[in-house]
Amino acid sequence: MIQRLILIVLCISSISSLAQEQDEDLLRIKERLDTVSAFKADLKLDVDISFINMPQKKATVQFEKGKPISFSSEDFALIPKRGLDFSFQELFEYPFITVDRGMETVEGNKLKVVNIIPTDKKADFSIATLYLDLKAEQIAISEISTKKDGIYTLLLDYSTSESVLPTKVEVQFEMERIRIPLNFMGKDIDVDRKKMREEEVKTGKIFLTLDYKTISY
């Protein structure tokens, strides 16, 4: 009986030791991101969604701490609602706890994997997994499970190991198959309705290339 109790106590203590209040490495990276108060960048967007054909689009993106990110474009552009928060301010907006998931090697890079779990119901995500490059103090991958918009993943690429903000971002997201009244906008002879029904939820990708004009710290 005593042995069993000791075992239970040991199990509970080992689980609770995994769930830290807030991960030190993550906080260090967050602090670094917090130093960016504003930026303005030229944005190139390449869309990779099976049912959307779109040439490369250009836009200007503007960020100011505490404000929603804003865009402007001379021609039409589809800009993803998720995945453009490079400062990750949405992620750290409400109180959270972290869980250290250990180290993982991704494409030859050793990355620390940390789960972020918000403790406030107001947060619009339920869990986020961040892959941290501890050496460069950068977030390499973020996988965010939102409450409304499914899961989206960001693969971030930085021009140098000193960079705070990424220059290339791949945004992967889930989206519903578009439904259009057929016969409405042109030739529908080749529309495979069966295939369309099978592909209700699709994964889309958007590749963003950023050329920063100004970064204010």
Binding site: L78, I79, F173, I180, F184, M185
Partner: peptide, 20 residues
Amino acid sequence: GIIDIVLSNLKDTFYFEGNL
């Protein structure tokens, strides 16, 4: 209104910038 119908599904995922 027609454009809205066509793009309604995409509105959950994207912002639209520009005039279609």
